[in-house]
Design a protein around this nucleic acid. Structure first.
Length: 167
DNA sequence: CAATAGATCATCT
DNA sequence: GATGATCTATTGC
């Protein structure tokens, strides 16, 4: 799922951007996942049906956007790490905290259905040609070596290290 | 480029 | 009461 979401288009209100960087979180099997410790009021949507947004506040000032990726009862999800506005690499959301700010995403979109409503994911109108690269995830303290971060190879809108292995 | 500190709050123990 | 899937600014190579 994380691999497939790279290159898709995210829509929220008037904002449109291409997803250029994602990370996978494996739920109960992944100590880095919020769902690792089981169901809580916050992680409830992770255990719900796929295709819904999981938004949370981190460090008291940034929101992070995830898409639930696995069937109901299975809490796998994909963190959206970076977006690129077409033709405006520098106006893009580079990093999970900045992209939610740029798109106007807050706790209000938590649990939103991403196949309908104001926050949606679409296939790109024009199939862009690009290669997807893989690397370990960023900013976590568990399973640091798992290659679950996916991004558009060579994109300047990607956060963090751009060195990679192709996939 | 690397290391560090500070901002700030919903959520969990 | 502690913590964190972040970002920015600043300092020191």
């Amino acid at each position: 799922m994380a691999r497939a979401l790279v290159g898709k288009v995210l829509l929220h209100g008037d904002h449109v951007a291409r997803i250029v960087e994602t990370e996978a979180y494996l739920g109960l099997a992944d100590a880095a996942s919020h769902a690792f410790r089981g169901v809580t009021p916050r992680t409830g949507v992770l255990f719900g049906p796929p295709g819904h947004a999981y938004v949370y506040l981190i460090y008291g000032m940034y929101h992070c956007l995830n898409i639930v990726a696995e069937p109901e009862g299975s809490p796998g999800c994909v963190l959206i790490r970076a977006l690129e506005v077409e033709g405006q690499p520098e106006a893009s959301g580079k990093g999970p905290g900045r992209l939610t700010r740029a798109m106007g995403i807050t706790l209000r979109q938590n649990g939103a259905d991403v196949t309908r409503g104001s926050l949606t994911v679409h296939a790109p109108s024009r199939e862009a040609k690009f290669e997807v690269a893989v690397s370990p995830r960023i900013g976590i303290k568990h399973n640091v070596d798992w290659p679950l971060r996916f991004f558009v190879a060579g994109s300047r809108s990607v956060s963090g290290p751009r060195s990679f292995n192709r996939v």
